[in-house]
Design a protein around this nucleic acid. Structure first.
Lengths: 200, 200
DNA sequence: TTCCTTTCAGACCGATCGGTCTGTTAGACA
DNA sequence: TGTCTAACAGACCGATCGGTCTGAAAGGAA
């Protein structure tokens, strides 16, 4: 139970995520991974079972975390408006903290095998169901307009691309705020209090 | 100037786009491309200079087309509200018509070399500038709230993921409508007329 | 017919792919 | 001290990668 091994493994996860995000999964060869981590094949495969398992672990991590935190948010049980606001804020901050993994999550679904795809898909669906539930409750209560929920499928894309392409722009908190501002006004049935214009 | 050559080339573009969208660029080997197109290497490389050039052409095509059509929309010069609505509708329909190419456009940016990246980036920026211009005009005229325009960076993602994950769901027209419904309400400064609820 | 160009087949290339296997080293434990 | 195991190095593997090259059909122009 030495901690050295766990450190190395964590380093492999971290460096691999960065490389996969920059160059893609298939675009990153094993040799590149090895030199980034500072290991040779023997050491590498002592910690990881296969390159694809490595990818899967990187992809499951972020969605698993927000799924967990969303449980607490929903259980807190405020109004649909408050819950939706919290879900969005949480997602935005989670992505900002782990941009590489989330980029991979969005881009590399097709690089997984059937088993991996199913596991990712299940978590994805479970998480988006939280959003759908809240929206439906809000529609039922009259807080939200009767919007078509098809757009929920692109919640991940809505956040991640704002972050990725504004990487050297404003901070994550203000970007999250700006997205949620448009989103909340987009679904709300009643006029919301005016928000401060940009430029902070 | 025989048309046979152009047909073959078009077939290569079409089949490659489908494979790249399903399996990724690096995930699709040359041998797979060849058997899908029904050619051997000699024939293939007679029409295409390299696999990466093929990818670049697939990616430039869709963004080039919406950039062109957006020019006409902006020149038509209605109100910002009308222009924004037209831009969104046009983009949604363009994506529905060429889902594979647009999927690649969003996923495979990192698979390009520096030169290809710059060309794609330039078109991307030019197109999104159209959106930003319209939004700024609408804010100036008071039609739109003073929203932070950071979210514009994820317009592509907002549409494409809705399409991709609803592939076997509703038709493209209603999905485009649902996205634009949320978006227009999200930026509008005045209450919009109620839209019909889903279920069509 | 002769010639020329377009369109393709398929052998061949070096490089690299992900992964395995045998050894070696260093530290913990008895 | 001897023993055991986790943590690595690095040679080695077959398969596949993208790409080149020679040559052959096929069809139109002269």
């Amino acid at each position: 139970m030495s901690s050295r091994g766990d450190d190395t493994r964590a380093r492999i996860l971290r460096e691999s995520a960065e490389l996969f995000a920059r160059q893609g999964y298939y675009g990153t060869g094993l040799s590149e991974l090895l030199s980034a981590v500072g290991l040779h094949k023997g050491g590498f495969y002592h910690h990881i079972s296969s390159k694809e398992d490595l990818l899967l672990e990187i992809m499951l991590n972020p969605i698993d975390r927000v799924l967990e935190s969303s449980r607490a948010i929903v259980e807190a049980g405020t109004t649909p408006t408050g819950t939706l606001q919290s879900l969005g804020t949480d997602l935005g901050h989670a992505m900002a903290e782990n941009l590489s993994a989330w980029t991979i999550f969005l881009r590399e679904y097709s690089s997984l095998g059937p088993a991996g795809r199913e596991r990712v898909l299940a978590l994805r669906r479970a998480y988006l169901d939280r959003w759908r539930d809240v929206l439906e409750k809000g529609i039922a209560s009259g807080e939200f307009r009767p919007v078509d929920l098809a757009f929920v499928e692109s919640i991940f894309g809505l956040f991640i691309y704002t972050f990725v392409w504004n990487r050297e722009g404003a901070d994550a908190r203000s970007m999250t705020k700006s997205i949620m501002d448009v989103l909340m006004h987009g679904v709300s049935a009643v006029p919301l209090p005016p928000t401060a214009p940009q430029g902070g």
